[in-house]
Amino acid sequence: MEFERLLASRHHFMKASEIRELLKLLDQPEVISFAGGIPDPEFFPREAFQRASAEVLTQAEPLQYSISEGDLGLRQQLKAHMADLGVPCGVENILITSGSQQALDYIGKLFLSPGDTALVESPTYLGALAAFNAYEPRYDRLQVQGNQSPEVSTAAAQAAGSCVKFAYVVPDFSNPTGETLGCGAREALLDRATTLDCAVIEDAAYQALRYEGEAIPSILSLELKRTGDINRCRTLYCGSFSKTLAPGLRVGWIVAAKPLIDQMVLIKQASDLHSPTLNQMLVSHVLSEGFPAHLEYLRKSYRERRDVMLNALTSYMPDGVHWSQPEGGMFVWLTLPPHIDGAALLKRALEQEKIAFVPGQAFHADGSGANTARLSFSCGKPDSIREGVQRLARVLTAV
Rank of each mutant, 00 (worst) to 15 (best):
V91W: 10
M82A: 13
Y106V: 00
L119K: 13
H81M: 05
A118D: 04
I96M: 07
D116I: 14
Q102I: 03
I107M: 03
D116G: 15
Q101I: 03
Q145K: 10
A134M: 15
N93H: 03
I96C: 01
P150N: 05
Q148N: 03
L78W: 06
V120Y: 04
M82F: 15
R141M: 08
V87F: 04
T154D: 12
A157G: 07
P150Q: 12
A83E: 11
S113Y: 13
R141D: 04
Q145H: 07
L142S: 01
T97W: 00
L104Y: 11
G108V: 01
L110D: 06
A157W: 09
Y139L: 00
G86N: 13
A134C: 12
L78S: 01
L126G: 04
Q143I: 11
I96A: 00
L142F: 02
L110S: 05
G99I: 13
G115M: 12
T97F: 02
P88T: 12
E121C: 07
A128S: 15
R141A: 09
Y125N: 11
S162N: 10
Q145Y: 11
Q101S: 13
A159I: 06
A128P: 02
T117E: 08
G86A: 12
L129S: 10
A80P: 01
E136F: 04
V87C: 05
